[in-house]
């Protein structure tokens, strides 16, 4: 009895991997040369930052909230990465202008050129995320509106740091993102590391169970003596942490920063979580699925180009994949209910 009852559930949990596999097969069928070291590198490079942003969004969705600011936050981190983190305060365009006009000396003291400033600002970003979690819990605020406001704030800060696209990513991030390990392309290794790390953190640790439980039945968690405030703070801080990694990896790939570089990540990350088998409410999420979902969304672009469909349809394909997967899921649920 157990075996047959489980099969729709099994099908459901396999759906993300199956959709990725279907997409990959379609791509290889259209363009066999894509099945190579270089091919994977090209197709999946951008999947790394998207996967990290998706994990960040997943943390927030776990506790039944939504982060509409993740895209601009990733952009903010990229701007910080291209300036403060590579050359300290001295790398800011504003400071450079002042130097050019002679207001500031060309030789800046150590304190103004150390990348520590960048580390400090990025740490502050995570603290801001943690505080948002606390604010949303204390005042019982709708996360959609609060993070909507935050998206303006991050965008504004990015523009202040980097008014026009530019800057330079720190060398170590660039070399990390362009690693050429033997046999297995770097994006695949990175995706596996992200998935395993997030899986252990959220799915395997003992506090991770409490974090997810708070999405499933907050009253039960509270009744068992856990602090829901701490849970919210922890999940938002984690979102800030993964969002930071997303921004840094993105700037490592693009080598320069831009405030508008990741605006689409907000919607992509939500789509990635859902594609990966996550539920919108109830704490049912899957870090491995989320990474697979992000990869699927990234590959959709390559698939279209191999089909010789103009890139205009890239977003449309992402939307279509999302709808098809949701429709399949609805069908499976329907089948399950009829049993």
């Amino acid at each position: 009895m157990t075996g047959s009852a489980l099969s729709p559930r099994l099908l459901r949990s396999l759906l993300p991997a199956l959709s990725l596999a279907a997409l990959l097969i379609a791509i290889f069928w259209l363009q066999p040369r894509a099945m190579s070291y270089v091919g994977f590198n090209l197709m999946l490079n951008l999947a790394i930052p998207i996967a990290l942003a998706t994990i960040a969004q997943m943390c927030v969705i776990t506790v039944n909230d939504l982060d509409l600011s993740i895209g601009t936050y990733v952009g903010f981190v990229a701007c910080v990465g291209a300036t403060l983190l590579s050359g300290g305060v001295g790398a800011l365009p504003l400071v450079k202008d002042l130097q050019a006009s002679g207001t500031l000396p060309t030789d800046l003291p150590w304190l103004l050129t150390t990348p520590l400033a960048g580390i400090l600002v990025l740490a502050l970003g995570i603290v801001v995320y943690a505080l948002l979690g606390a604010l949303i819990y204390w005042r019982d605020l709708p996360s959609i509106v609060v993070t909507l406001g935050m998206s303006f704030v991050w965008l504004g800060l990015s523009v202040v740091i980097l008014p026009v696209p530019g800057g330079a990513a720190p060398g170590w991030i660039r070399s990390l993102m362009t690693l050429k390990p033997p046999f297995i392309p770097f994006p695949i290794i990175a995706a596996a590391v992200i998935a395993i790390f997030a899986h252990i953190l959220i799915m395997r640790t003992s506090y991770g169970a409490v974090l997810r439980g708070a999405g499933g039945n907050p009253r039960a968690i509270e009744r068992a003596g856990w602090s829901l405030l701490k849970v919210k703070v922890a999940m938002f801080a984690l979102a800030g942490f993964f969002g930071m990694l997303a921004g840094l990896s993105l700037v490592g790939l693009t080598t320069s920063g831009d405030a508008n570089i990741a605006l689409r990540y907000t919607l992509l990350s939500i789509a990635g979580v859902i594609l990966g088998g996550g539920e919108f409410v109830g704490g049912r999420i899957s870090p491995v699925g989320a990474v697979i979902g992000a990869a699927t969304l990234t590959l959709a672009g390559s698939f279209l180009s191999f089909l010789r469909i103009p890139p205009d349809w890239q977003i449309g394909a992402q939307g279509a994949i999302l709808i098809i997967v949701l429709a399949l899921r609805a069908l499976i649920d329907h089948a399950e209910k009829r049993r």
Partner: peptide
């Protein structure tokens, strides 16, 4: 239609349809 047929939250429904609509507009 998406909200009702797929029984998904309106945010997800309007999000995924916006992808399609945006693409149509671009094309």
């Amino acid at each position: 239609g998406l909200i009702i047929l797929l029984r998904i939250p309106p945010i997800i429904a309007t999000l995924s349809s916006s992808f399609l609509v945006q693409s149509t507009a671009i094309a």
